[in-house]
């Protein structure tokens, strides 16, 4: 059987994302890649923790952060993680239209998160907290910006994936791709949970 063929319910494997050697390799390779990404973000977190009180003349974390906006953004991203789980469930049941529906909702939530983040950054710049204003500014925008960059890349990824496979069913070629996107999206979500805790909550309480 050719890996690019639409799968039918009859020949649908239990784990379509790992049914071929290519799929297995991608699955493992991507997990390892996320391991590296973890260290990457850990380095950014470490730097941020070292510099978060170095706001010089600019506003401090307590003065700066507006929790309602950030909370809303957090909710959007957490929900998008949930919707991507539904998409993966659809993947395992060979229901491609449902999969597309849930991934589109995931995408919209992701874009909403990005919009809020841009709005938040603009507010901060307005209050004198910029990338060059202090070491705190540099560390903050680098950490949160790296995460935002990951979200933006994820949006581009899922757009490409959806358009490319719009009229194809689930195949052994695209199943690993959908699956890996979902994995990536969860990872980005988990990183955000840490950012919310370490940057925003800890910034508010001390």
């Amino acid at each position: 059987m050719d890996a690019g063929q639409r799968l039918t319910d009859a020949n649908f494997p239990e784990h379509p994302e790992k049914a071929t050697l290519e799929g297995k390799n991608k699955f493992l390779g991507f997990w390892l890649f996320l391991g590296g990404e973890t260290v990457l973000f850990a380095t950014l977190f470490g730097t941020y923790l070292g510099l978060r009180h170095m706001n010089m003349d600019g506003p401090s974390t307590e003065e700066l952060f507006k929790l309602p906006t950030v909370f809303l953004a957090t909710m959007l991203l957490l929900t998008s993680s949930l919707t991507s789980v539904y998409a993966v469930l659809a993947l395992k049941q060979n229901r491609v239209r449902t999969l597309q529906k849930w991934f589109i909702i995931t995408l919209i939530l992701g874009l909403g998160f990005l919009g809020l983040e841009v709005y938040e950054f603009m507010e901060y710049v307005h209050e004198g907290h910029t990338f060059t204003s202090s070491a705190f500014g540099s560390a903050f925008y680098t950490l949160v910006g790296f995460h935002g960059g990951h979200v933006a890349f994820g949006c581009l990824w899922i757009i490409t994936l959806l358009i490319r496979n719009w009229n194809r069913g689930i195949t052994l070629v695209n199943a690993p791709k959908y699956y890996l996107f979902a994995l990536y999206w969860h990872f980005v979500d988990v990183v955000w949970v840490f950012i919310f805790t370490v940057v925003y909550l800890m910034g508010k309480v001390g």
Partner: peptide
């Protein structure tokens, strides 16, 4: 390698975009 990647990004931001990670005059270390 990921820590190196981040370190190099910081060094680049410092040189190209005037970041302050390593500039003690502006709170850096």
């Amino acid at each position: 390698f990921p820590p190196l990647t981040i370190g190099l990004f910081m060094l680049m931001f410092e040189r190209v975009f005037d970041a302050n990670f390593f500039n003690p005059d502006n709170g850096g270390n």
